[in-house]
């Protein structure tokens, strides 16, 4: 589904990714771990197409398309979803209105008919249950005055609404208490299927107890330095990142 080859990316002339390789197939969950500043969030942003980053070398294939030619909204319509580490506030725009616009634009790009109010409401009600989010919250301005947990739940709710092929969860666990973490993970697990894939970017092993990955990669200094299965995460938790540094 996703194949990243020798990816180099920089921001304001500072090199962050320095030759990263990653292959993700449908049905898989990949965890990307690494210390602060290793380039985890940059990787998420680059896949989503954030323009602040310059891709200087390498390429990203998604569903056999070269992504570099696509704008962020085109990538989203191709099925890439980014759950933001810091979800953005947009005053005056309700999540409902926001999602309706997004869902119908995605449908339009696929040549499908837009949902009418009744169909949309039905879809929304169904997905709301998944992350235990209240209607009242969705009628408020997106993320404005939301607690940390509410913001992250709202991200997963949007993911459910848009039904992406590839979901990238950028530090979705940061700032969550254990109950919120369970709700969010439960949502993600329910959405897992053999047709989609998930990349979980995280700093802590804790999340991986709830979203169990097929593969774990350690990202350090802009490169994946070690890959393994879920036990690698446990090992990391125990020994710390220095363990890998020493080994290398």
């Amino acid at each position: 589904m996703l194949e990243i080859k020798n990816l180099h990316a920089s921001i304001d002339d500072t090199k962050i990714l320095k030759g990263l390789n990653l292959k993700v197939s449908t049905g898989e969950v990949h965890a990307i771990m690494g210390p602060n500043g290793s380039g985890k969030s940059t990787l998420a942003s680059v896949i989503a197409g954030r323009e602040d980053y310059d891709v200087t070398e390498g390429k990203i294939d998604f569903m056999n398309n070269e992504l570099s030619e696509l704008s962020p909204d085109e990538r989203a319509r191709e099925g890439i979803f980014l759950a933001f580490q810091y979800p953005v506030e947009i005053p005056g725009v309700s999540t409902t209105n926001f999602m309706k616009t997004a869902v119908n634009q995605v449908r339009k790009s696929k040549g499908e008919k837009p949902l009418d109010a009744v169909e949309f409401l039905k879809l929304m009600k169904e997905k709301m249950k998944l992350v235990n989010i209240k209607q009242e919250l969705l009628s408020r301005s997106i993320n404005e005055g939301f607690s940390g947990g509410e913001k992250k739940r709202n991200e997963i709710f949007q993911m459910a609404m848009l039904n992406p092929k590839l979901s990238i969860l950028d530090e979705t666990d940061s700032g969550l208490d254990i109950d919120a973490l369970k709700i969010v993970s439960n949502g993600v697990n329910t959405l897992r299927s053999k047709d989609n894939a998930t990349i979980v970017v995280t700093h802590y092993q804790r999340l991986l107890n709830y979203i169990v990955p097929d593969f774990v990669h350690v990202l350090m200094d802009g490169k994946i330095v070690k890959s393994g299965d879920k036990n690698l995460a446990l090992e990391l938790e125990e020994k710390g990142y220095d363990w890998i540094k020493v080994k290398n």
């Binding site: 989503a48 197409g49 954030r50 323009e51 704008s71 962020p72 909204d73 990538r75 989203a76 319509r77 979803f81 980014l82 933001f84 979800p87 953005v88 947009i90 926001f98 999602m99 616009t101 997004a102 634009q105 995605v106 790009s109 949007q158 848009l162």
Partner: peptide, 8 residues
């Protein structure tokens, strides 16, 4: 960017 990422 947030809107774009949702396909808008």
């Amino acid at each position: 960017f947030y809107c774009l990422q949702r396909g808008i």
